[in-house]
Design a binder for these strands. Structure first.
Length: 116
RNA sequence: CUGACCAGGAAAAAUGAUCGCUGGGUGUUAAGCCUGGAGGAAAGUCCGAACACCACAGGACAGGACGCUCCAUAACGUGGAGUCACGGUGACGUGAAGGAAAGUGCAGCAGAGAAUAGACCGCCCAUAUCUUUUGUUAGGUUUGGGUAAGGGUGAAACGGUGCGGUAAGAGCGCACCAGUUUUCCGGGUGACCGGAAAAGCUUGGUAAACCCCGUCCGGUGCAAGACCAAAUAGGGAAACGCUUGAGGGCUGUCCGCCCAAGUUUUCGGGUAGGUUGCGUGAGGUGUGCGGCAACGCACAUCCAAGAUGAAUGAUCGUUGAUCUGUUUAAGGUAACAAGAACAGAUAACAAAAUUCGGCUUAAUGAUUGGUCAGACCG
RNA sequence: AGGCGCGUAACUCAGUUGGUAGAGUGCUACCUCGACACGGUAGAAGUCAGCAGUUCAAGUCUGCUCGUGCCUA
């Protein structure tokens, strides 16, 4: 199996998992994202994405989710330790281009590494 | 040529490589391979249905929706063709367009009066009185009447014009006109249209105020519903037990000791979770026929997304479209410039969530056809 | 996806069957005071979310949009 795939087992999909994350996890803020993470239960990093209705319409929300998934797919081996991460998008992302969002994600993940 | 009106309207950039997501098939439950993967509005959730469950003998009331006619449709508050009204010089556009002569209510301010009308100014008559005059001749004031023709108010003032009539006036009378109701004739399936006669003289507005009349409507919605089903805690049943000790603990077994009233099995409901509902349908496309059209019928052909913290993408190229800039440049007296090359930018509104039929709203749009008015020329 | 509400002055809210929009806080000016606060007097500030329609007349009635909250797992 290639290193760049993103099957469902390395994603956070269930509501119960999101709730335990938000109870137990640590939070890292940037100007455009909020990340909640804790030590993971499986041997891989897992990612969950939350984009609420306040961010934009359906087209914009889908775009942001795809960009975050694509970033995680390419960089999940570079992130240390097995972690469950929930990335919550905040307002103001819709006006940015795809490249700019990727730069913002870079900043976010370096911040997560430092926080650990 | 200028200014308008109406009807349509393709496309929603294309393609390659790499890395992914997701449905189906194949495969050994895997890997791999093959093959599908957003819209005209998927949107808003404003109507109508299908489908599902609940309720239900039948009827009525209440409540709600709709409301010119005929047709279309599974149905509709939708569509088509018409009628009438209003707006526009016109092409054409707009209209929730039944009933106000069944009843109840409402109309601020202004104005004399706002709905079985009304006397402020004005006009006219009479009485009393004053002045005046040859003279109840003229004028003023008071009181009592008549009068809806004139003024002014208002969104709206209880038919209009003319003649007669009268003290002044008045549908009080007459003629014509407008309108209402009734009857008759002709046309149309019908709304309605055209014409004639009579009556009473005119009966205002508002029903997107209550209401009346007619038609229709049981409720809830795929988070409907169906099936499978952990863990934990209740419930039912059976068996074995309650000092004659089930069961548990003391390192594996036995003895012994201790704790002990429940323990075990099973059934049913059902939560988390999962499966299904869920993609062949009032389906699409083409041709022919019927119909003014909406639409219908026949034949042929096609199968075209099914996710659920929710897929349909990302990166790098190539080619095209539009715009901007630079260079060049056919052609032009000139201003300017078709075209070509290079560089940069841009590419709308918006994404399935049970499924269909409509409506509404958002928004890019090359361009095509028809019609009307005016000006000019022939 | 389905289903409910609410938009009025800078802010918080009234507005009863249609009749020309108010209250409190705040703001501005003046008075009071040596000055400030308190107090008193006066004033300004509204596309009644938007666009149409009904009506003589819509904050109010009707339709459609926009924004904003809430419920159903």
């Amino acid at each position: 199996m290639s290193n760049f795939c993103l099957p469902k087992k390395i994603r956070v999909l269930k509501r119960a998992q999101f709730l335990t994350l938000s109870k137990q996890g640590r939070k890292v803020y940037t100007d455009s994202f909020l990340a909640i993470f804790c030590v993971g239960t499986t041997h891989n990093n897992r990612i969950g994405i939350t984009v609420s209705k306040k961010v934009g319409n359906a087209v914009e929300r889908n775009r942001i989710k795809r960009i975050i998934r694509e970033y995680f797919r390419h960089n999940k081996e570079n992130i240390s330790g097995p972690k469950d991460i929930n990335i919550i998008a905040r307002k103001g992302l819709t006006s940015l281009a795809n490249r700019q969002i990727i730069e913002k994600l870079d900043k976010l993940f370096t911040k997560i590494d430092v926080a650990k």
